[in-house]
Design a protein around this nucleic acid. Structure first.
Ligand SMILES: [Mn+2]
Ligand SMILES: [Mn+2]
Ligand SMILES: [Zn+2]
Ligand SMILES: [Zn+2]
Lengths: 138, 138
DNA sequence: TACAAGGTTGTAATTATTACAAAATGCAAA
DNA sequence: TTTGCATTTTGTAATAATTACAACCTTGTA
């Protein structure tokens, strides 16, 4: 496990460098969390998870790292909560479902692009949010 | 115009009473604005529009009225801005398009319901947001 | 006229996020 | 090695949208 992690960290390091991002410890750990835990976390959720193992981590680092990744196209911002921003490591076209009972966010891997109608406007980006009761809660 | 307005106000009054809402002057004016100007305003946008003609209006009244209307099912909250809440007097199923150039929000009157896929979850509510360049800006 | 219920107002508090400057870190030249 | 510089991290302060709250107004009724 430890060895695996170290190898994995090397891969993340390579990937960050490719994107022109210097691979600091904090950035690697944040990226690692996002790939390992596909929970579409907010900055605060991520901070609370990591602070246990990284006692000096600051919220500012989490926010700035997430924004950096998003601006480099490595993350997607999703707004399924209404106001608060959550982040998705999977930048492919897909929809999201949020259970209003347990709060969990699920991926729905169907491209909305093909389903949605043509309009007189030029559509560049599409976001589809579904709400209801998840398979576990019903 | 003046006479029309007065008649119109009476209709709004009736409608509010039907919904169990006492038809105060502020509530009538806010409802009037929402039906007359279909711009999906935020609380702040609405406040700035009305404060000119209603100098004593407070933001708190705007927020609480919009929330009251929304909770009674007379308005829909829409989150096309990411961070800030906008309100839609049209509670029917339809999608929204936001122009990233001029900022205007357009309705797209196609029911998403029929287009979107079935899932293993029970979907109760659906929101579709499209972003791009509007017909006026391109 | 007096009272009670509900509505409005202004201010303070809260929440999520960004701005900013000081401290820490990493790296490369001397 | 040390020194110096650029970058990153950190903590705190500022901002923006929204909600909480208490005092003040209105309105309808006895
Ligand atoms: Mn996703
Ligand atoms: Mn609409
Ligand atoms: Zn659930
Ligand atoms: Zn436009």
């Amino acid at each position: 496990m430890k060895r695996e992690n170290r190898i994995y960290a090397e891969e993340i390091k390579k990937l960050l460098i490719e994107k022109g991002i210097s691979p600091s410890y904090q950035r690697i750990r944040i990226f690692d969390f996002l790939t390992t835990n596909r929970i579409h976390p907010s900055a605060e959720m991520l901070y609370l998870q990591l602070i246990g193992e990284m006692p000096t981590l600051s919220r500012t680092t989490v926010y700035s790292t997430l924004n950096l990744f998003a601006d480099k196209g490595m993350l997607k911002r999703i707004f399924i909560e209404g106001t608060l921003v959550r982040f998705d490591i999977d930048t492919s076209d897909h929809m999201h479902f949020k259970c209003t009972k347990c709060g969990e966010v699920f991926d729905i891997f169907k491209s909305a692009k093909k389903l949605l109608p043509k309009t007189e406007h030029k559509v560049i980006n599409e976001e589809v949010y579904l709400y209801g009761i998840c398979k576990n809660c019903k």
